[in-house]
Design a protein around this nucleic acid. Structure first.
Length: 121
RNA sequence: AGAGUUGACUGAGCAGCCGCUGUUUUAUCGUUACGGUAAAAUGGAGGAAAGUCCGGGCUCCAUUGGGCAGGGUGCCAGGUAACGCCUGGGAGGCGUGAGCCUACGGAAAGUGCCGCAGAAAAUAUACCGCCCGGCACCAUGGUGUCAGGUAAGGGUGAAAAGGUGCGGUAAGAGCGCACCGCGCAACUGGUAACAGAAGUGGCAUGGUAAACCCCACCCGGAGCAAGAUCAAAUAGAGGGACAGACGCGUGGCCCGCGCGGUUCCUGGGUAGAUUGCUUGAGCUGCAAGGUGACUUGCAGCCUAGAUGAAUGGCUGUUCUCGACAGAACCCGGCUUACAGGUCGACUCUUUCU
């Protein structure tokens, strides 16, 4: 499939607990006040996204959903990331932040992780 | 018109593009059941989805029946699958009123508790008082003391053992009477809670049961990560078939016997997958019964089903510029949060006709 498709089918997601464990084991990190992103190279020809929005940090279900959607949407539009697995963790400040600044933050993270993973391997 | 009470509804709209997910259809690939991919059509959060406070369905476990313990409920009747819910009624309280609120069973079964004040807080052993009598002294009234009779008056308290008046008395006292209050209550109305009440008692039962307790009724436990199915791996088990060549043990040796081989089946159940998963105490309309909650009949409809977890993003546009908030097995309630808007019924005040 082509990267310019902008679709988000199930195979671009992390599904199993084992896959999450792999990323948490020895990741490349990138973080700011809103998010912490963990990444690792995979053996596939496309990136995969996993979300870990803790109830402890984001109390209301509505806010958790909102953040998940924002991250997914942003990932969907930025799919020329290569073969890495990414897990996004939300931090407490992300609740009150405007969506526009969340997006800007994410776009920086994608670029950072791509270059770091490339140099790491 | 203003102020208010109450019941119900609603919870921004429209268009385009890009996504996610369920279902259906078509095309295509794989040998079929079926699965993958693509396209099209169509469905896709709430009134509270929330808190998890009750009740039930469903599932597994336990279970002859009953009792004890423990927990819950608590005016009466009805509704319901059931309820701590709802409806109607009663009683008490609040409000001018429409209406609203109430853990609203039992204190003469027993036990406990009732601060401060006060003599006394429940067995009245009566503090100051009041009164009769005996004795002593002064002299016909008082003082002291002893033995009694009292609860009218004083003072304390949230509360002091019916209230007021008259009679009565040594002083008093339901001691007697009238009225009021209270207890019991024939009888009457009501399914009942309860209401009314002839009469009667002579006043007896202070409060507290969200203190123990008594009475009546109800309750087995755990929960969809329940449970069911498929099933790599791994440990060990049972059976069959093949080979009957070989090794080890027994034995001096052969036969024999035991262990070891390969493969299949049964069984086992971890990772994982599938299922449970949405047609249901369902919704809408009409009719009938009922004061009502609700029930019955007929007709029509299918209205989220995700599983690292969908219902979103961007752009334009309109308006009154948008609150609380996100399904996770499913229902019935309760409670809590909530910008605004709509409709009905009723009450009070003012004005006009």
């Amino acid at each position: 499939m082509a990267n310019s498709d902008f679709s988000f089918p199930p195979r671009l997601r992390l599904k199993k607990p084992a896959e999450y464990q792999k990323v948490f084991a020895k990741p490349v990190k990138s973080s700011d006040q809103y998010f912490t992103l963990l990444a690792i190279r995979n053996d596939l020809d496309h990136p995969r996204l996993g979300l870990a929005i803790a109830k402890k940090n984001i109390k209301k279900a509505v806010h958790r959903n909102l953040i998940k959607r924002t991250v997914r949407e942003n990932f969907r539009l930025q799919q020329n990331l290569g073969n890495i697995d990414i897990v996004v963790l939300a931090r407490r400040e992300a609740v009150d932040a405007p969506l526009e600044s969340l997006r800007k933050s994410l776009e920086k993270h994608w670029l950072k992780l791509v270059t770091r993973c490339a140099s790491f391997s």
